[in-house]
Simulated assay, not measured.
Amino acid sequence: MNSRNGSAWVNGPGAVIAKYVLLSFYGYFTIGLTLAVLPVFIHQRLGFNTVVAGGVVSVQYVMTFFMRAYAGHIVDSRGPKPAVILSMFCFMAAGISLCLAFIWASSPALSLALLILSRLFTGCGEGMVGASPVNWAILHAGEGHTAMAISYNGIATYSAMAIAAPLGLLLANNVGYWSLGVLTIITGLIGWWSAITKTALRGARDAPKIAFLKVLRLVTPYGAGLALAGIGFGAISTFITLYFIYRSWANPAICITGFSLFFILGRIFFSRSISTYGGLTVAIVSMVVECIGLLVLCVAGSHHLAIAGASITGLGFSLIFPALGYEAIRNVSASNKGAALGAYGLFIDISLGITGPLVGFVASHFGLNYIYPFSAFVVLAGLLICYLIKRPAVGGYTG
């Protein structure tokens, strides 16, 4: 009996999905390594202002935006495996660029250019790996496990960042900035090897395909809510280090860890609420919690309370992506799910892409103490959009 139960667990949908979303872990581990390091390095070491620092970080998300459609096309036509393999090559290239940028830190303009190149490679890698492991997992486990696949993928990505962010600071301070580039290259190699050893799968190729722009239109209402909610996460991941320095607090990376930890706990304990109460209801409640966390962060009088605020924000943001994603793709055919997930993912790219310059502008013109009240206001706007989408659904609209 124990043997059969163990075999069932190993071959069950959760274990199958975990094998694929581990690929997302590798990709987002490389992203998380520099989250708490780059803004400070650009602002304090290279001497550029907060707008430039935020803009360089956001270059990644601009590139990710442009790669989403291409990645969706590859997934739907050739399967997820080629997209994942290409993403790992991009992460390795990003690591090489990082090494060179840190080596030539004595030439600020050249170092900044290399950092931008690294962010472009990272954005390309994120765009290719963002939805590909999820599709791979769905193809193996079945469409009935779509919500589980999306939730598990989020656990993989944010646990990766929870580990990588403080590790990146530790390595930068005790080994040297160059070590971040080296570890990025090694992680990309591990991810590449993991991908090539897995069986290639493809969806139904005889089913009709929908033009990407039409798919984009279908998911836009839900994506808009996601984009506005993502500003809270973007403001924490990009500016929490500078905010802690401004408040003379230590250990800013713990905020990213706290955010990510509670994000993971939210996915583990509350993901079933999406199918029970509906994606829009869960998204609305989640945005309320996210706003509370951001407000706690902005009124915090100590770094302990700030960490608590970031953690509450992570709990709130936890279910927004799968909740709205569940609503966005549930009426899309299997042959178009790669494009639908890619199109939906565009909105978090837009969100994180504009967060750097937008919140950087708020910080430069009004002060760093205004960035989290501003972020909470934007998340409230996302909550309003979700409420407006839900209203016709209550009256009988289901599309």
Score class of each variant (00 low, 15 high):
Trp192Ser: 03
Leu218Phe: 09
Lys198Leu: 14
Leu295Arg: 00
Thr187Arg: 11
Leu261Thr: 13
Gly279Val: 03
Ala195Asn: 06
Thr187Asp: 11
Arg272Cys: 08
Tyr246Ile: 01
Arg205His: 12
Leu297His: 02
Leu228Ala: 06
Trp193Asp: 06
Val299His: 11
Ile274Pro: 06
Ser286Gly: 08
Phe262Thr: 11
Leu183Ser: 04
Leu213Thr: 13
Val182Gln: 03
Val288Asp: 01
Phe263Ala: 12
Leu242Phe: 00
Trp249Ile: 10
Val282Lys: 01
Ala250Gln: 13
Pro252Glu: 10
Ile264Trp: 10
Phe212Asp: 03
Leu218Met: 12
Ile240Gly: 01
Leu226Val: 04
Ile256Lys: 09
Tyr277Arg: 09
Pro221Gly: 04
Ser273Glu: 09
Tyr177Pro: 01
Val289Glu: 00
Leu294Glu: 02
Ala204Asp: 15
Ser179Cys: 06
Leu201Ile: 10
Gly225Val: 05
Trp178Met: 10
Ala204Trp: 04
Phe233Gln: 04
Val219His: 03
Leu183Glu: 01
Ile240Phe: 00
Val282Gln: 02
Gly203Met: 06
Ile231Thr: 12
Met287Asn: 00
Phe244Pro: 00
Gly258Asp: 04
Phe259His: 08
Arg272Gln: 13
Cys298Ala: 13
Lys209Leu: 06
Leu228Glu: 12
Leu201Met: 13
Leu297Gly: 08
Phe212Met: 08
Leu265Gly: 02
Arg205Glu: 14
Gly258Glu: 05
Ile231Gly: 07
Ala200Trp: 08
Lys198His: 11
Thr197Asp: 08
Gly278His: 07
Arg202Ile: 15
Thr187His: 14
Pro252Ala: 05
Val285Asn: 00
Ala227Trp: 14
Leu265Ala: 07
Ala229Gly: 09
Arg267Cys: 06
Ile268Arg: 04
Pro208Asn: 09
Lys209Asn: 04
Asn251Trp: 11
Gly191Arg: 01
Phe262Ala: 06
Ser271Gln: 12
Ile256Met: 15
Arg202Asn: 10
Lys209Cys: 01
Phe270Val: 10
Tyr246Val: 02
Tyr246Trp: 07
Ala283Gly: 03
Leu189Gln: 03
Ala204Tyr: 07
Ile264Cys: 13
Thr199Leu: 12
Ile284Met: 00
Thr276Asn: 11
Ala229Arg: 05
Leu218Ala: 06
Ser273Thr: 15
Thr257Trp: 15
Leu201Asn: 04
Ile245Gln: 12
Thr184Gly: 07
Ala211Pro: 06
Ala235Arg: 05
Ile245Thr: 07
Val182Ile: 13
Ile231Val: 14
Val288Lys: 00
Thr187Pro: 09
Ile240Met: 02
Trp193Cys: 08
Lys214Ser: 14
Gly225Ser: 07
Leu201Asp: 07
Arg247His: 15
Phe269Ala: 05
Gly191Tyr: 05
Ala235Tyr: 03
Ile185Val: 14
Ser237Gly: 01
Phe239Thr: 02
Thr197Val: 13
Gly223Pro: 00
Tyr222Arg: 02
Ser286Arg: 11
Leu216Cys: 11
Leu297Ala: 15
Gly203Pro: 00
Pro221Tyr: 14
Ser286Pro: 10
Leu295Pro: 02
Ile268Ser: 06
Leu180Pro: 02
Ile245Arg: 09
Ile240Cys: 00
Leu295Thr: 08
Ala207Met: 08
Ala283Asp: 00
Cys291Trp: 03
Leu180Gln: 02
Trp192Phe: 15
Gly266Pro: 11
Ile210Asn: 06
Trp192Ile: 09
